[in-house]
Simulated scan of single mutants.
Amino acid sequence: MTVVSVSMPEELVERIDAFAEEHGYTGRSEVIREASRNLMGEFDDPRLEDHELMAVVTVLFDYHGTTVEERMIGLRHEYEGVVSSNVHSHVGDHHCMELFVLEGCLEEISAFVGRIRATNDILSVDYSVRPVDEIDPIT
């Protein structure tokens, strides 16, 4: 097996180690391998292929000392053919939430979600994807 070096905040390493111990993994490498396989397979659902899709993407970030809001605006403009709606909201004293409604093909939506996830200083990204035509409902 190839050994890969990955940089991450100490708090995340501690969470991974605790998760591994609590759930019976042999160590952090096993947790990271499984998480990587799951992430890579998220958009591999054949029921989504060849359909016009709709997606809702929710992004949470701390707006103090970051440029996330400006980067979200940039991505909204870059993907204007996919983003059909966008809402910005303040949450609590230090956080913002961006909600994106997308319409497009699997490749476009997957690319947009990937770009959002690759943005530094994001606290969480949640999304759901459904075929617009609902011919083959996903359960």
Score class of each variant (00 low, 15 high):
T2S: 10
V3G: 10
V3Y: 12
V3N: 14
V4C: 14
V4W: 08
S5E: 03
S5N: 13
V6A: 11
S7P: 03
P9K: 09
D17A: 12
A18H: 10
F19Y: 09
A20N: 07
H23P: 01
H23N: 14
G24M: 15
G24P: 12
G24F: 09
Y25E: 07
Y25H: 11
Y25S: 06
E30L: 13
E30T: 13
V31S: 03
I32N: 01
I32Q: 02
I32P: 01
R33G: 03
E34S: 14
E34M: 09
A35E: 04
M40T: 07
M40Q: 11
F43D: 01
D45L: 11
P46S: 12
P46V: 07
R47W: 05
L48N: 05
L48M: 14
L48A: 06
E49H: 06
E49A: 12
E49D: 11
H51N: 13
E52H: 04
E52F: 03
E52Q: 13
L53D: 00
L53P: 00
L53A: 03
M54C: 09
V57M: 00
T58H: 04
T58C: 10
T58Y: 03
V59D: 00
D62E: 09
T67L: 11
V68E: 01
E69I: 08
E70V: 05
R76E: 06
E78S: 07
Y79R: 03
Y79F: 14
Y79C: 02
E80V: 06
G81K: 04
G81S: 07
G81C: 04
S84H: 06
S84M: 11
S85F: 10
N86R: 07
V87Y: 12
D93C: 07
M97A: 10
E98M: 04
E98W: 02
L102G: 01
L102F: 04
C105N: 15
C105T: 08
E108A: 10
E108K: 06
E108F: 06
I109V: 12
I109H: 02
A111N: 08
A111S: 13
F112A: 02
G114F: 05
R115E: 10
I116R: 00
I116C: 00
A118G: 08
A118K: 07
A118W: 04
A118N: 11
A118T: 03
T119G: 03
T119Y: 02
N120W: 06
V125P: 00
Y127C: 05
P131A: 08
V132Q: 11
D136S: 08
P137C: 12
T139N: 13
